[in-house]
Design a protein around this nucleic acid. Structure first.
Lengths: 127, 127, 127, 127
DNA sequence: GTGGTCTAGACCACC
DNA sequence: GTGGTCTAGACCACC
């Protein structure tokens, strides 16, 4: 795992787990790696991992059982809430970036429509 | 200036200048800082800045006149081409992120429309 | 400040601030000491203080403004909620202790009544 | 056994034995561990244990027979006296804590009554 | 100066 | 073995 130095590593770790849960690669009851294990895997200090795990517990994503490990608890409702939240963030970021390039709302929508159609065409071409 | 360690700094420097040109903060004929000056300002190795400036010259964004400095040359056509290029990149990135969250094309478009409308409403409210 | 080693220091710090807010010694808008300052005062590592302050922010007790300091935000509703919560904890603890000594509910109530009356008498005597 | 560093360990040891006697887990004539044994078990300096045992003898809780060990002597009267004494301490502590939160005597009594009733209800529910 | 993040590493509690 | 707490100290961002 390679992290940006532009935003906190513990948040990037949380984001990784969020995505895994949203994509249902991690389901309720699944055990995630122990803090030490994960820290070694991604080459990060165990304290940083612990902070991420602790915040994930506060966010209701996982549950930590002392001496046993950390387990996913986010059910379907929570999963959708998390997906919605991440999508909103991505969307906002996208809109701001486009506006900073001078794009108007209409132009943005038109361009997205076009891109999605283009990609379909590309897929058709490939097939 | 704060750079990511996740992609080459010289590319990030180029991106900054691209954005300034696209936003017309930098116009044809404008002088940009000397390599040494810029390197000090953003705390980066002068070699990194040199590489960025060289590539910008290759891209037709700037022109370097020995003993005089580096000047913007990108005209309106070039400006629009660069805007288009950056927008495409942002768009692609956006689509990939949304898809990785499980969003279909239609849902993506609907959500963008909704976001743009919401923001308008907010502005209306404020007025 | 002297801390027990029987439960986490950061929680004891939180408890101190909780009590100050409940007793209205700290009111909304009041600035609490900087993390470094407080750490020196109570002879604890700044990281431990930071964890306490962070959790207090999560609990809605304070608000932290980067570069400016940490400020009480808990209003009257929050204050009462906190008082109620602490009282419940103290009460539970008390009941458990008394039961472990073999006291029945009635005996407990009788004894508390008697103690409160005794103290009044004592005060009367002193006067 | 885990001790607080906030008050003398020898007193905490005495308290443990007091509770055992009050709960009649230890009865007159019962042998308690040798000082050395107990010191090892709770990981405390033998001198600390010795001081605790000596004070317990002064308090009339136990009797030490040279070469044979230490035995509980507290009879039923002594047991009740000890219970009363501990209860008083707990009670005082409780009242002080509640007052420091701003609770009046009446409110304290009402709250205790309520808590005891609530717990009964819970038990009824469970049955 | 004030808070925020991270590393390194010790020691403890619970299983 | 797994998580929890704490110290020590570096470096950064924002004011």
């Amino acid at each position: 795992m390679k992290f940006d130095n532009s935003w906190p590593i513990y948040m990037q770790i949380i984001d990784e787990f969020k995505k895994s849960i949203i994509r249902t690669e991690l389901k309720p009851g699944d055990k995630i790696p122990s803090q030490r294990e994960y820290a070694q895997k991604v080459r990060v200090n165990p304290n940083t991992v612990q902070r991420a795990y602790r915040e994930m517990e506060n966010l209701g994503m996982v549950e930590t059982l002392r001496g046993q490990g950390t387990f996913v608890v986010a059910g379907e409702d929570k999963r959708q809430e998390m997906a919605m939240e991440m999508a909103n963030t991505i969307m906002q970021h996208f809109i701001l970036q486009m506006r900073s390039l001078g794009y108007q709302d209409k132009a943005m929508l038109a361009m997205l429509t076009q891109h999605l159609e283009l990609e379909e065409d590309e897929q058709v071409d490939r097939v």
